[in-house]
Design a protein around this nucleic acid. Structure first.
Length: 466
RNA sequence: GGCGCGGUGGCAGAGUGGUUAUGCAGCGGACUGCAACUCCGUGUACGCCGGUUCGAUUCCGACCCGCGCCUCCA
């Protein structure tokens, strides 16, 4: 079965056809680095990471580009508030972002272009648009894109420019010819952050960097362009207008957009004060639990960040790790060695269907049941199945932890440290030997109250944080 | 107002024109000193109303409800 991808442009699932056989150029809109990444960013990062891992596992040569917006009004405003150079702020936030990514098991993209490193490319593209009469220099020396010159405007987000009029407004003093026009190059004064250009000192507008950098790194036409749920309009619409006007070529073949993250069933927003940064979330939950949570729904569905759902994610992962407990030293199977496995075939079928990670996880759970049955029977083949499970998990960036470490990590920190728990476990073992079951049960109850679960296995008592 | 998405069993969440999703929770059983883990069994789930069909949760239409975008936001 062939890979199918839902294309925002056509609003349909389409069979993926690469521009060059075996190769995929993919550009994903990254972060504006004026603050820490939040759980919504995490979703986009994890979703496209899982896709990239999967595509590579299937032999695709993926060139994954994800930009960093490191110059923008919000950045300048925040830097001014902090009374620091904007580049100090962005450097700090970029480091923080990389830290968050690593925690979530997100592999670095192949290229991570920054707007401030591509000012020349941006200026070149703006100049082309001015030369082509798709852009004009306004009285205030801003350069604007003239939306009315681009007939296809609104095609991606299925919007009719005339109907947009209703909500549009022109700020007093703006020099646009039309409210829909958007800024490509923003004029600034001598004392403001900016770069020289044919139109005077200025800085890039909000959308042009992605057009310039994607073209620079992936060519005038490339395969996949992705991003968050609020990007189709206006950001990606404007990118299309810019790039296609500048090059005269189709910009992108497949547009992919992740679904929204909600918090306790409300829109996540700063005004509602229900905004969670990745760092805050990771204080409460194991990073792999967060990753699993994000992959346990289809990437396009809205998901709800809530205590219940994260606890449930924890429980799901526990099932995997309990099965893998005795196979800590078993290496993940390479896909080559499991290519004839029925589970693998189902896994691929799920992932080929627009990256249905939830369905892929369901296949892995089926495998877990078989694995547990083999373990129970003491079958030597269990190790191979465990390796297969790890191999499938690795494609999604999951199950890479040491099982016992994960199981003892706990969703909430127990008040007892490991040695205190182990002392109590030993005490209980002694009580059991003396058939003092009342004492043994009271210790177990005490631990249970601390979130510690005991299991009396043949080899001795095991414990984990539940 | 315009455009779009969705309403699935207690919860989460896939999917399908007729046959088990899956996970968690529940119930019964096996195992256990008791548990936990695990396995086995167990749920007349598909918003409402019409239509198409031998048959619809799945297709079509209307309706109700929820959500997103239309403004900076992943």
């Amino acid at each position: 079965m062939a890979l199918k991808i839902y294309n925002t442009l056509t609003r349909k699932k389409e069979t993926f056809r690469p521009i060059q056989p075996g190769r995929i150029g993919m550009y994903v809109c990254g972060i504006t680095v004026y603050d820490y990444c939040h759980i919504g960013h995490a979703r986009v990062l994890v979703a496209f990471d899982a896709m990239t891992r999967y595509l590579r596992s299937q032999g695709w040569d993926v060139n994954y580009v994800r930009n960093i917006t490191d110059i923008d009004d919000k950045i300048l405003r925040r830097a001014a508030e902090n009374n620091e150079p904007f580049s100090d702020l962005t450097a700090r936030m970029i480091d923080a972002m990389h830290e968050d990514e690593r925690a979530l098991g997100v592999l670095p993209p192949d290229n991570e272009p920054r707007a401030t490193h591509h000012i020349d490319d941006i200026v070149d593209m703006v100049a082309t648009l001015v030369d082509n009469h798709y852009a004009y220099v306004a009285d205030n020396r801003d350069v604007y894109y003239q939306v009315s010159r681009f007939p296809d405007y609104g095609r991606l987000s299925n919007k009719n420019v005339d109907e947009l009029m209703v909500g549009a407004r022109v700020e007093p003093g703006e020099s646009k010819r039309d409210p829909h026009d958007f800024v490509l190059w923003k004029a600034v004064g001598e004392d403001e952050t900016g770069w020289p250009s044919p139109w005077g000192r200025g800085r890039p507008g909000w959308h042009i960097e992605c057009s310039a950098m994607s073209t620079c790194l992936l060519g005038e036409t490339f395969d996949i362009h992705g991003g968050g749920p609020d990007l189709p309009f206006p950001h990606h619409e404007n990118e299309i207008a810019q790039s296609e006007a500048a090059t005269g070529k189709t910009f992108v073949h497949y547009w992919m957009h992740a679904g929204a993250v909600r918090v306790d069933d409300e829109k996540m927003s700063k005004s509602l004060d229900n905004f969670f940064t990745i760092r805050e979330v990771l204080e409460k939950y194991h990073p792999e639990v967060v990753r699993y949570f994000l992959l346990s729904s289809h990437y396009r569905s809205p998901i709800n960040y809530s205590e219940d759902n994260l606890v449930e994610a924890r429980q799901g992962l526990e099932r995997f790790y309990l099965a893998l407990r005795d196979f800590a030293d078993v290496a993940p199977a390479t896909l080559e060695t499991i290519k004839s496995s029925a589970h693998y075939a189902q896994f691929i079928e799920a992932m080929d269907d627009d990256f249905n990670t939830r369905e892929a996880l369901a296949v892995m759970f089926d495998l877990v049941r078989e694995l547990n049955t083999l373990i129970q029977a003491g079958a030597p083949s269990a190790a191979a199945l465990a390796a297969e499970l790890k191999g499938l998990g690795a494609v999604l960036g999951l199950l890479g932890s040491a099982p016992e470490v994960f199981l003892r990590s706990g969703s909430r920190q127990s008040g007892l440290d490991d040695s205190a728990i182990e002392a109590l476990v030993r005490e209980r073992d002694d009580a059991k030997k003396n058939k003092d079951y009342a004492r043994a049960d009271s210790i177990r109850e005490q631990l249970s109250g601390q979130g510690v679960v005991l299991e009396d296995a043949r080899e001795g008592t095991r414990w984990r944080r539940g």
